[in-house]
C-alpha cells in the first residue's frame, strides 16, 4: 500500500552571523542580532523567586570561562504560520540560548550532579543537545533567591524569564521574508500502511523542581502557554513526529 502523508512542517533556518551588544533588541533575516539588557529589570521584578539576572554573550573563542550549572540549551524558534507541529517555523542557527542558575547562598540549581565550572570542560560541544562549537551562546545567568533552586517555582521562573526575553526576537522573526532563509527543511508525518507499526516511548522528567517537562507551549521550544507533565499526573501523552521535532516540549530538567 502507498504511503500516506499525514502532515507537513517547514522549518526555515536563518543563519546568524553576528551577535553584539546594543541599545535595542533586534534581529534581522540577514543575520545580525543585537542584544540589550534593557528589559531585564522589569522581568526580574515580575518573578518572585528571582533575585537578579545577567546576560553574557559567549563568542565561539570565549569558552574558557566560568559557568554556573547549566539548566538548558534552547533553540530560538517561532511559528511564522500555523501551530507547533505544522505550518512554518522560523529558527535561528549560529546562536542558541543557555540558562544557568545559582541561588544567593551560592547553591547551584541542580538535582543530581551539577555542571558548574569552566565552560569548555563542562559541555561536549556539537552533540544534538549542545551548542555547535561555532555558535554564539546567549547565556542567561540567573540568581535565585535563597533555597529557590530546589523548589519547582525557581527553575520554572528562570525558564519563563528567558522565554519572555526571547519572545521579543521571536515577534520580529515571524515577519522574516522566507526567501531570505539560509536553509529550508521540510518534514512529513508519513504513515506507511503494512509496515511495522512502531512507537517511540520517552520517559521524561517528572519529579519536581528542575526535574520537569513543559508540554504544549505556544512557541516552539517555548515555555509560555505550556503545562507541566507533573501537573498532568505524569500520564502518557502522544505527540506526532513533527510536533516533537518542531519543539512541542521544553526541558525543565
Amino acid at each position: 500500500m502507498a504511503d500516506i502523508d499525514l502532515g507537513r512542517l517547514v522549518i526555515r533556518a536563518f543563519d546568524i552571523k553576528s551577535v553584539s551588544w546594543g541599545d535595542e533588541m533586534k534581529v534581522t533575516p540577514q543575520g545580525e542580532m543585537i542584544i540589550s539588557k534593557s528589559m531585564l529589570p522589569d522581568l526580574v521584578s515580575s518573578m518572585d523567586t528571582i533575585e537578579a539576572v545577567d546576560i553574557r554573550l559567549i563568542q565561539p573563542d570565549e569558552h574558557d570561562q566560568w559557568t554556573n550549572t547549566i539548566l538548558d540549551i534552547i533553540p530560538i524558534s517561532t511559528k511564522a504560520l500555523g501551530v507547533v507541529g505544522e505550518g512554518i517555523t522560523h529558527t535561528l542557527t549560529g546562536v542558541c540560548a543557555m540558562i544557568t542558575a545559582v541561588d544567593t547562598e551560592g547553591k547551584q540549581c541542580h538535582e543530581f550532579g551539577s555542571s558548574e565550572g569552566n565552560l569548555k570542560e563542562k559541555i561536549i560541544f556539537d552533540n544534538p543537545g549542545t551548542p555547535h562549537s561555532t555558535d554564539v551562546i546567549i547565556s542567561f545567568d540567573v540568581t535565585l533567591k535563597a533555597g529557590m533552586g530546589q523548589e519547582r517555582k525557581g527553575p520554572y521562573q528562570a525558564h519563563l524569564l528567558c522565554d519572555r526575553f526571547l519572545q521579543v526576537y521571536r515577534e520580529q522573526m515571524k515577519n522574516f521574508d522566507g526567501k531570505l532563509c539560509s536553509a529550508r527543511n521540510e518534514f512529513h508525518n508519513i504513515s506507511r500502511p503494512g509496515k511495522k507499526r512502531v512507537v517511540i516511548i520517552r520517559e521524561v522528567a517528572g519529579q519536581g523542581a528542575m526535574y520537569d517537562m513543559q508540554l504544549f507551549p505556544h512557541e516552539p521550544s517555548g515555555v509560555e502557554g505550556g503545562r507541566s507533565i507533573i501537573d498532568m499526573g505524569n500520564m502518557p501523552i502522544l505527540v506526532t513526529p513533527n510536533e516533537y521535532r518542531d519543539g512541542i516540549l521544553h526541558s525543565m530538567q
Binding site: 504544549f216 501523552i237 502522544l238 505527540v239 506526532t240
Partner: peptide, 14 residues
C-alpha cells in the same frame, strides 16, 4: 487543546 490532543492520538493509532 484537549479535544485536539484526542484527535492527534486517534491519528497516531491509525
Amino acid at each position: 487543546l484537549t479535544s485536539t490532543r484526542a484527535a492527534i492520538w486517534a491519528q497516531g493509532m491509525r
